[in-house]
Write a protein that binds this DNA or RNA. Structure first.
Lengths: 223, 223
DNA sequence: ATAGCTTTGCGTCAAAATAACACAAAGACC
DNA sequence: GGTCTTTGTGTTATTTTGACGCAAAGCTAT
């Protein structure tokens, strides 16, 4: 069998929208570029695909080496192929998003220097390349995903309360949901399982602690 | 600004799942390969991206030159990057699907030779490369799409009847839907507009002719 | 301890959406 | 005209949804 003589091929990159949720805010992780182009502007983390890698390997490499994170939920999004999206030459990016509970990876001076920062998705700065577009598309994708697949637990602790899950959904979907109807739909869907425990040390009534139903493959929620 | 010295890059291809609907059957268009690898096996049409092209241009080129079709609805799907998916070397494919009303492009001996053929999606032969997987994913994507965006009209004539639309949905979703409830949901959604005309020359009662509401950007149907 | 406040869990009810089905009108065929 | 099939319209019971009432749990101040 002949091995095809490669055409001239564009560079292929994996770009990452890393979502984190803490203190009731949905954020994404951005890098400040220290080289041209877009020097001193914030961009999404990313890297070029190496010949022996799969795209998810490239993502894992970026997460590990640039951000000190591993073992994250990863989802592939669409491919950005506008010819002038990178002024250095033809580069095509396959976007991905990752979901991370920031509590798992403390921001240290070492790994998380001045050039790495969480930004509230509602207050993003103008990003370099076409990363504004990629970030906006990723958020839409996450909003859709969370209604049909049980991914919220990737952003929360293993044990969480109903009000915490409620706030997460309101935050990601950017809508307000009646807390009693939310409870009913989530429980009816079998989305989560009560552990019988309660969160201690809070003000007022102590909420029940739940864990996700890991047997669930897909759900259907509408708010 | 420095132009980046390209890494060694994998080949990048656009692979196409061309959906057509006729005689109540949803089909996809396959090519019979006349060279190794997978010689004499059926595969999806596709081509490598040229440096000056966008992916949709590559798709249009394949549709025009290999299949004699143009001006089709085109949607990008996900990217297939398994390292051994092409035995000739590292090749990454961005899958797309196209929707076509086969009535617009008659199958002629010239353009649609023995090596191009429509296959019922429910009776696909084993495909070369990882195209079984791509075709299956594309169908899932179409099933989802048709519930949320008005794309059915891409597969039908400009004027169509309620029973025709009903059969299309049953066929694509592979479920049976009560015809009276279907009518109510479609009309309530403002999905289609009655033209006042009727389809003539058929058996029994002549059904009303409708056209799609082109102002509609998205819909929400559940069956 | 008790009153007052906030948060959480549970329940109610009317409105809307859905599924299942009855029936009549239109048109073809005998 | 009678019969059959297909299409258009309507009805009803059930389920789902949205809006909200209320009491229990737990903290704080007196």
């Amino acid at each position: 069998m002949p091995s095809f003589s490669s055409y001239k091929n564009p560079s292929l990159a994996a770009d990452l929208v890393v979502f984190g949720y803490q203190q009731g805010i949905l954020s994404i992780l951005l890098l400040n570029r220290n080289t041209e182009p877009f020097k001193d502007q914030w961009v999404l983390p990313g890297a070029f695909l190496l010949m022996e890698e799969r795209l998810r390997d490239t993502c894992a490499r970026v997460l590990k080496t640039k951000l000190g994170m591993d073992d994250l939920y990863l989802e592939q999004l669409c491919t950005y192929d506008e010819p002038n999206r990178d002024p250095r030459g033809r580069a095509i990016a396959v976007a991905h998003y990752a979901l991370v509970n920031p509590a798992r990876f403390a921001i240290t001076a070492g790994t998380m220097a001045n050039d790495v920062k969480w930004f509230n998705v509602k207050e993003l700065p103008g990003l370099g390349f076409d990363h504004d577009l990629i970030a906006a598309d990723a958020l839409k994708s996450l909003q859709h995903k969370i209604l049909h697949y049980p991914v919220g637990f990737e952003l929360l602790n293993d044990l969480f309360t109903m009000p915490e899950l409620h706030a997460l959904y309101e935050c990601i979907l950017d809508i307000s949901i009646d807390r009693r109807n939310f409870r009913r739909k989530i429980l009816d869907a079998g989305y989560i399982i009560s552990t019988g425990k309660k969160r201690e040390g809070l003000h007022n009534r102590h909420p029940d602690l739940y864990e996700f139903n890991k047997e669930l493959k897909s759900i259907h929620l509408s708010f």
